[in-house]
Each structure stands twice: as C-alpha cells, then as structure tokens.
Design a protein around this nucleic acid. Structure first.
Lengths: 213, 213
DNA sequence: GGCGATGAGCAACAGCGTGTCGCATACGCG
DNA sequence: CGCGTATGCGACACGCTGTTGCTCATCGCC
C-alpha cells in the first residue's frame, strides 16, 4: 500500500541530505557542461560527487530526475522582483528594471544557466516566466475586455514569455555581448516595437483585410 | 589511418538502403512521440522497424545519429519559397504569404514536426530559418549601413528567426488553434508591431536615455 | 550530552542495452 | 544472369542500471 519510497518528497532539513544533494547537483552540472547530458551516467555523477551510487538512488529516480531537480533549483534562484501592487503604473522603465534584474542574475551564474539551457530547461524557464508575465499584464487583459485586438489575446502571454526567454538565452549563448543594462533596454524595446520596426520597416502596409480578431 | 567507417556518408541509391533507413526513421518517430526520446532504445527502434539490430549500426552510429538524420530529413522538407529577386519590393503581404506557405507545410505534417520539436530539433529549425530570414533582409541591413538603430543590427537576424520558430512551434503545440492564413497574419503583425503594441500599450515612454546604439 | 532515528557507505546481484563480430542468405543493379 | 552488396542471424564481452541487506556514522531532539 505504500505508494512508493517517494524519493525527494520532503523538504531537506537534515544536513547530510542537503550536503549529498548539493554534491550530486554540482557534479551533474559540471559533467553536463563538459560532455553533454547524453554522455553523463549516474556512475559518473556519483564518482565525481564522491557519493555512493546506492545513495544516489535514495534521492533520485534516475538521471532525468536529477536533471529536473537541478533545473528547478537554478530557475528558482532567478531574481523575480515583486510586481508592484498597482500594476497599472507599470511603465517602460519598470519593465527595463525588472529585465535588468533578471539579466544580472543570469550573468552572475552564466555558466549554470547555460547548462540549464543545454539540459533542455528552456521550457521550464518559459513556464516560470509565463506566470510572471501573466501577473504583470493580467489587469491589462481585463481592461481590454472584449475589445478588438489585432491578434487573439490568448496568444499574448505565452508569446511574450517565449520571446523573453528566447532573448535571454540568445544573450547568454552569445557570451553576453552587451551589458545587462543595455540588453534590458533592447529587450523591452524589441518587445514593444517589434524587430522589424527596429529595422526602420515602418512603411509596411497595415494588416488590412485581417481575419476576424 | 582510415578515419572511420563513415556510416551514412554516401547518398542512398540502393532501394534496400532507402527502405531500411525509412523504416528506421518512421519507427523512431512513432516511438519518440509515444515515450519521448530518453525512453527509446535502439532495440525498440529495430524491433518496430522490423530491421535487424546489427543493420541499424551499419547505418547509424547510435540513437542520436538517427535523431539528427530524422530531424534533417524533416526540416529539409519544409517549403521555403524562393525569395524574390528584388527583395526591396518585399512587402507585408509577401511576408504573410511566405509564412502561410511554411505554416501550411507544418500543418500538413503536424505530427512529424511536433516530434521534431520534442526531439530537440528547435535549434536546427532556427538555423535553417536564420538563413532564410538573412536572405530576405540582408539588403535592408546594407541599406541601413551605419545608420543608428534602437538596437544593435547584429541582433535582428537571430532574434527574428528565433521568434519566428517560437511562434510556429507554439502554434503547433497548441494544436493549431487558428487556420494557417490567420496565423500567418498574426505572426507578421507580431513581428512588425511587437506583442505589447498589440495589447494597446502604445503610451509607453520612448526609450530616452537609451545606451549608445 | 545522550539516545533514537535516519542517512550514507559498502559489496554484490541480476537484468538489460550496447556495439561488434563472422558467416549465410537474399536482393538489387548493370 | 551473375556479381556485388545489403540484410539476417546468433553470439560475445562490456558497461551501466536499479535494488538489496548490512554496518557504521551522523543528525535532530528531548
């Protein structure tokens, strides 16, 4: 009747547990960065972490379970500033500040987050971003109500978060070619004006004859 | 000195070879869609493909080699319309048409491309898109020359292609909630105006005090 | 500080998938 | 038609997995 050993269920308070998991996580990260996820075995991880292999299985079901744990612990570490209680006052500069805070955190642990992305943590990062974006612009969606928008309103939040994380990961993978402050401005500008307008493509005909929004 | 057996090097002309590879590819796709890449073994693939396991290794180095082969054969299948000889005439409606053609092709093989994305083929798809986008707007970048743009010009192409593929994959993963024609308009509109403008967020202060472009 | 609880180390196990042979056979190509 | 080549087949050693029962060390708590 015991459903299962339920590894990694309870919050880790025991010092031994914390130490072991941290050792496994760190070893895992360094190995993935060296060889890629596919080439890393449980044996490798436990050897580098100097943890007995049996102990690994007392904490994680398998390699992928450790991967999820690792990604989550890294994504959770990102600095998501609290949203102002009155989001209607959320202005351009606020968005830049929020973005800069996130970029700073990314830069601080650049190697780790590159590993997260290499681990396939993009979707998980997007998911967290989505909740954040939703919190910020939900009131705006309510205000819009049944108003006509050029594109369906349901698209806005998922696209906004996907595009945001795409920009972040591009910046990381390119080796952070611009300082966080500049990049933050670019990000918000791109999201506000669109990449084509930033090319001076303002003369394009409007989407007349557009489908029913 | 023989560098390596070099599997899968020559073009497949022998009918037996073509048949075997197709069988392996199809079996691989169906299995990945069912269980995910990690849970698929070479043994599984060969059993479903009704191909001897030894034969598998005569064509592919391992599971990941087959994955690359599969992704490439699918991405290559996408309909990339030829770019007009005079790209300066490339207008809004042209972009919509191009996008619609791609979306139609995606829809036609929706299950396959969902598999591609599940296989981690996103980056490969982005790469191909990047070359396409570059071809279209390169002249525009030349025209711009040293002109000031709100964001660095080097960002435009990679971001444009990343955002495009992000939109496509979102559309696919959501089960294609809008017909290709409508979605194409949404895509180009989003890329032109930005998602925030589509929310009516036009009142945002311009990025004054922006960093040196 | 001591005690009961619990996590970690250790050694061994069966099981499975991998990657590679050599040889026989069937199929496609010219 | 017959030569060349791809496939089928059975076998092999190897490495990694996931689990078990035991002992010892360490932690949390009274």
């Amino acid at each position: 009747m015991t459903p299962r050993p339920e590894r990694r269920s309870e919050q880790a308070t025991d010092l031994r547990v914390i130490k072991t998991r941290k050792a496994l996580r760190d070893a895992f990260i360094s190995l993935v960065r060296e060889r890629g996820l596919a080439a890393v075995t449980v044996l490798d991880v436990t050897e580098r972490a100097m943890v007995n292999r049996a102990t690994f299985y007392r904490h994680f079901r398998d390699k992928y379970d450790l991967m999820r744990f690792t990604i989550d612990s890294l994504v959770a570490d990102l600095a998501w500033r609290p949203v102002p209680s009155d989001p209607s006052s959320f202005a351009f500069q606020d968005a830049v500040d929020h973005t800069e805070a996130i970029l700073n955190r990314l830069a601080q642990h650049a190697d780790l987050f590159q590993a997260v992305l290499a681990l396939g943590g993009g979707p998980r990062l997007t998911l967290k971003t989505q909740r954040f974006v939703e919190e910020i612009i939900r009131h705006r969606l309510d205000v819009l109500g049944d108003l006509e928008t050029p594109i369906p309103k349901e698209m806005i939040v998922p696209i906004l978060s996907r595009w945001s994380t795409a920009l972040w990961s591009w910046w990381l993978m390119e080796g952070m070619p611009y300082p966080p402050r500049d990049m933050a401005v670019y990000v918000v500008t791109l999201l506000r004006d669109g990449p084509l307008a930033c090319l001076g493509l303002t003369g394009w005909a409007a989407s007349e004859g557009a489908p029913p929004g």
